[in-house]
């Protein structure tokens, strides 16, 4: 298959780009794909921590670009999933250490070995974001159901389209179904209505993700985890499968279920 280079970006910081990259990367690798996750957040690297690979870093992305080491010397194999590799960011350098052309060349060489290259973009719309975008074929936008995150996502979608990377896909992260039901949080329809791009998936608010990320562990070990299932479905959609959205609401009354069946049949 033709390899795909996808940048995961958001505009706003703290919406879960890095966590999303780690989990989609893991899910694709568990499906048997060879995956490289690239941390393009130079100077503020985090992807290694979430994957629990921090103490294995010897060389990084800037070393590869400057020719200090070979690409495969910098790639770190994930400790749990054999098909997953991390190219870490440099922590002691800044975004200015890299040019968009160099990122393009790097992505090009990663294509030779990997089915998927997922780039973790830094927050913001400046140089770091431009670098992350440079080598990508397409983009995934991550937002949380907050007005400010949606606003920044809208801005980023405009920039991705202007860079001729096609229309990006959307992931809504940390949706709290209880708050949505109470009308205290934007729901998925509001967000999709504003951003008017295709929805790739919704990740529910899940304390297990926070715990796992802090420990550098995987949520995929837990079969009952809704968020793990949500990530798996996103990975399958990236693979081109037509998978329904995960039902996040597990407190259905009988009547509620009946209504759902009726609307499915009619609609």
């Amino acid at each position: 298959m033709l390899s795909k280079v996808i940048v995961i970006t958001s505009g706003k910081g703290g919406v879960g780009k890095t966590t999303t990259v780690a989990h989609i990367g893991t899910a694709l690798a568990l499906m048997g794909r060879k995956v490289a996750v690239v941390d393009a957040d130079i100077g503020l690297r985090n992807l290694d921590i979430i994957l629990g690979l921090e103490n294995r870093i010897v060389y990084d992305l800037v070393n590869v670009i400057e020719g200090t080491c070979k690409l495969n010397q910098a790639l770190i194999r994930d400790k749990r999933v054999g098909n997953l590799y991390l190219l870490p960011a440099a922590q002691t350098r800044t975004k200015e250490a890299v040019e968009p052309e160099q990122m393009k060349a790097l992505c090009h060489s990663l294509r030779e070995t990997f089915d998927y290259v997922l780039i973790d973009s830094p927050a913001g719309i400046e140089g770091g974001f431009r670098n992350a975008l440079a080598g990508a074929d397409s983009a995934i936008i991550v937002t949380t159901p907050h007005v400010s995150a949606v606003r920044d996502a809208d801005r980023i979608i405009g920039l991705v389209e202007a860079a001729e990377k096609g229309i990006p896909k959307l992931i809504i992260n940390r949706l709290d179904i209880e708050m949505v039901k109470k009308g205290e949080m934007l729901d998925q329809d509001d967000i999709v209505d504003i951003l008017s791009i295709g929805l790739l998936g919704i990740i529910p608010e899940d304390p297990a993700i926070v715990t796992a990320s802090n420990r550098g562990e995987s949520v995929f070990n837990n079969d009952k985890s809704k968020s793990a299932e949500a990530y798996r479905r996103i990975a399958r959609r990236i693979e081109g499968e037509d998978v329904p959205l995960l039902d996040l609401d597990d407190n259905h009354s009988f009547l509620g279920r009946l209504k759902r069946i009726l609307t499915t049949n009619i609609g």
């Binding site: 719309i125 606003r151 920044d152 809208d154 801005r155 979608i157 405009g158 920039l159 389209e161 008017s196």
Partner: peptide, 12 residues
């Protein structure tokens, strides 16, 4: 009169 067929996003 000018007709523009596109969506204007934040910052545009």
């Amino acid at each position: 009169t000018e007709i523009v067929r596109r969506t204007f996003r934040s910052g545009q």
